[in-house]
Simulated assay, not measured.
Amino acid sequence: MMRLNRVLTWLGSRERVVLCAVFALLGSIWIFAELADEVTDGETHELDRSVLLLMRAPNDVSDPIGPGWVEEMGRDITALGGNVVLTLLTVMVMGYLALCQRQRLALVVLVASLGSLGANTLLKQSFERDRPDLVPHGSQVYTASFPSGHSMVSAATYLTLGALLARAEKRRRLKAYYLLVAIIITLLVGISRVYLGVHWPTDVLAGWTAGAGWALGCWLLTGWLQRRGQVEPEVSNPVGLDEIPSDGRK
């Protein structure tokens, strides 16, 4: 009964935020389902083809738009969504949280990252969509196309890490900074996959949707675990400002 009271108290104090997150989670599931249905029926082919060709030189589809350094930059950005980079980042963030004595929150980060990777693998095996064949691939690929693994796993990982790091930070400007950086990196990784010709645009859109939904689910789960005392509570600013006064007065 005491645990139920804690959960109800949390819902009552943050009902708007929780309801918005729940509706956003349900919305992401609905959008993904609609995209999957359209892709399966082949109704997105013309749109995918048009957007993909927009990122190619008009007289040579094998040449991505922009000078050579832009293509190299695209490969660098797409690496931010690779398994090696995401694994290293997850381990480093877990180390940071452990040093801050938030070991259980670090465990949530581990579960979130591994879970998104597993979910993406299952989805790819379910749909088995072929990779784009209109243009040469600018990066090595080994799996099916839908949904984009780089887009989904990077969205799930970066958005989850951004949200959890924001919980561990008391200054509002840094909370916003964590979330903004996570969103920007997620968007750039997805765009780079289309630019390099290894994914259809709808693959990336589906990956973003599924990854964002996963991150929202992890955020809601973390809040629920906090109410049960299983995860360290969120840090809040006691003075309600971005910074504590420089003279140390509360």
Score class of each variant (00 low, 15 high):
residue 72 E to S: 14
residue 135 V to H: 09
residue 169 E to Y: 01
residue 229 G to N: 11
residue 149 G to H: 03
residue 138 G to H: 11
residue 236 S to E: 10
residue 128 E to H: 05
residue 102 R to T: 09
residue 110 L to M: 11
residue 43 E to W: 08
residue 51 V to T: 13
residue 142 Y to N: 01
residue 29 I to P: 00
residue 106 A to N: 05
residue 74 G to C: 07
residue 229 G to H: 06
residue 107 L to P: 02
residue 204 V to K: 02
residue 196 L to R: 01
residue 27 G to Y: 08
residue 87 T to V: 09
residue 165 L to T: 05
residue 139 S to L: 12
residue 212 A to W: 03
residue 235 V to G: 00
residue 129 R to A: 06
residue 142 Y to K: 00
residue 187 L to R: 07
residue 184 I to P: 07
residue 123 L to M: 11
residue 122 L to E: 08
residue 132 P to C: 12
residue 102 R to N: 01
residue 2 M to Q: 15
residue 171 R to K: 12
residue 101 Q to A: 15
residue 24 A to F: 11
residue 228 R to T: 01
residue 31 I to H: 01
residue 211 G to P: 01
residue 124 K to A: 13
residue 90 T to L: 10
residue 33 A to H: 10
residue 34 E to R: 09
residue 145 S to I: 02
residue 164 L to I: 15
residue 153 V to T: 11
residue 172 R to F: 10
residue 213 G to A: 07
residue 177 Y to I: 11
residue 128 E to Q: 15
residue 1 M to V: 13
residue 82 G to W: 10
residue 35 L to C: 04
residue 175 K to D: 11
residue 188 L to V: 06
residue 145 S to M: 05
residue 120 N to R: 00
residue 235 V to D: 04
residue 52 L to G: 14
residue 122 L to A: 15
residue 192 S to W: 11
residue 149 G to V: 04
residue 55 M to P: 01
residue 93 V to W: 01
residue 127 F to L: 07
residue 35 L to P: 07
residue 241 L to K: 08
residue 164 L to F: 13
residue 178 Y to I: 03
residue 97 L to R: 05
residue 49 R to Y: 10
residue 234 E to H: 01
residue 107 L to G: 13
residue 122 L to I: 14
residue 231 V to H: 02
residue 45 H to A: 13
residue 50 S to E: 15
residue 218 C to D: 05
residue 231 V to M: 06
residue 91 V to W: 05
residue 123 L to E: 03
residue 219 W to I: 02
residue 48 D to V: 07
residue 177 Y to S: 12
residue 212 A to H: 01
residue 79 A to T: 04
residue 58 P to T: 03
residue 235 V to E: 06
residue 66 G to R: 07
residue 160 T to C: 04
residue 23 F to R: 00
residue 133 D to Q: 14
residue 132 P to Q: 07
residue 152 M to V: 03
residue 208 W to T: 03
residue 42 G to W: 11
residue 29 I to K: 01
residue 58 P to S: 10
residue 222 T to G: 03
residue 102 R to P: 05
residue 209 T to S: 10
residue 32 F to K: 06
residue 20 C to T: 08
residue 13 S to N: 15
residue 56 R to Y: 12
residue 118 G to A: 12
residue 97 L to V: 04
residue 103 Q to Y: 10
residue 25 L to N: 02
residue 30 W to C: 09
residue 42 G to C: 10
residue 151 S to K: 02
residue 81 G to K: 07
residue 143 T to Q: 04
residue 99 L to G: 06
residue 245 P to R: 14
residue 104 R to G: 08
residue 113 S to H: 14
residue 192 S to P: 03
residue 208 W to I: 02
residue 224 W to M: 12
residue 162 G to A: 13
residue 152 M to H: 01
residue 124 K to F: 09
residue 127 F to S: 06
residue 94 M to W: 00
residue 243 E to D: 09
residue 138 G to K: 02
residue 61 V to Q: 04
residue 24 A to D: 03
residue 105 L to F: 02
residue 192 S to Q: 06
residue 151 S to L: 00
residue 244 I to V: 12
residue 15 E to C: 11
residue 52 L to D: 09
residue 201 P to S: 05
residue 35 L to D: 03
residue 9 T to H: 12
residue 115 G to P: 10
residue 108 V to K: 03
residue 182 A to H: 05
residue 50 S to F: 15
residue 55 M to Y: 02
residue 123 L to T: 00
residue 12 G to N: 14
residue 122 L to C: 01
residue 223 G to W: 09
